[in-house]
Design a protein around this nucleic acid. Sequence first.
DNA 1: ATCGACAATGAACGATCGTTCACTTAAACA
DNA 2: TGTTTAAGTGAACGATCGTTCATTGTCGAT
Lengths: 213, 213
Amino acid sequence: MASAEAARKKRKVDKDLHREVLLDATASVILKHGVSGTTISRIQEESGLSRGMINLHFQSKDNLIRELAIHLTQAYNDAWQSFTSQAPQAVSTPEDAAARLQALFATDFSEDVLNERSARLTFAFRAEPDLQALGPGYTETRGTDLHDHVRSCCQVLCEACGTQGDPERVAMAIMSLLEGLWTDFHAHPREFSRENAVEICRITARAFFPGYF
Amino acid sequence: MASAEAARKKRKVDKDLHREVLLDATASVILKHGVSGTTISRIQEESGLSRGMINLHFQSKDNLIRELAIHLTQAYNDAWQSFTSQAPQAVSTPEDAAARLQALFATDFSEDVLNERSARLTFAFRAEPDLQALGPGYTETRGTDLHDHVRSCCQVLCEACGTQGDPERVAMAIMSLLEGLWTDFHAHPREFSRENAVEICRITARAFFPGYF
DNA sequence: ATCGACAATGAACGATCGTTCACTTAAACA
DNA sequence: TGTTTAAGTGAACGATCGTTCATTGTCGAT
């Protein structure tokens, strides 16, 4: 029987791989139907795995979605960490700070970080009351390393430029600007221009810190 | 029988009132359980009305949610229209433009416009793939009167200040800033400060348009 | 070669889903 | 007052939900 043979092959693969397949399939289903339309049957169909698999690897459907949220957050953090590691750690000069902000803009709107899948899923999870219990950093960007980083850059640049206003507020403005542009991408993924988004960030930074952007 | 008497009283009220009650109850359920946790049973419990009511007034549960999204969008638009009607229509001088932007900031973060209910529901609807088919202006703010208004203010102010950069991009920056601050409110409704949000908008506007904020 | 150990399966289950519709009740009108 | 009209009701329905668990298949150890 063909299905028996296929099943035998499938069973050879690693157990952890099945976890990944399920997480990936779940993400695809949420992408198409939203969290409210995500069912075991659809995940089963999307993944090609058996029905009992979900409760075997994850204890429940809700837990699967929860773990997906954690999984994707870590993926986002990793992507951003790889960016931050290749730049100078200490931000001493305003030139360094400006360069790091510029690099941050480019990273945050790169295809790897911001795409239709990541945006849709981010907004889907953000809307689920249950997932907000995961704690800070899972459904929003406040209180994250990213925020700390922007803050330190703004402090250096505010001092260098004599910018009026609390550096903390300037940092918050830039963070919010990024959030808002993500929202724009989510609403209009086809019309969105990454270059334009980076440029909007640049002119905003230049308005705050003349001479450095 | 007490329930019979109560039912008799209830039936006296206007039919349209029942529609409102159902919409309001649905909003409350979404607030607590998200769209994925919104069921007929819960709406019935929250509203105190009978089960068949939902399909009598709205044809289906999905349609009820759809009409709620439209209802709330109109409420938001009305709130904003009442703001825009009491200010000078034509934006000729940069002082006018600055005053109107300031008033817009105050309005957008007022208790009437931005509150836990409106924010939660906005983000809930935004995450539903089906509701994005409603068209522009229902799940986001691009292409709305609001956007046009900000754009015209920015054009006048850019010219007056000799601000570098496309006025359209500056307008987009300010729109995105508002969106991002809404997101911050949604994530941290208790810690959020309306005054701080307005101040962040002000220092950003001042950075773009020195001398007017 | 035999035997646990454990991943994988999918039929079956009870619960709950959204919807229907025969029926009741109140208001409007003659 | 009797009759017509329409709003309101909720038991019942079939569909689908998430979960369970007896069974099967596979592999490593003995």
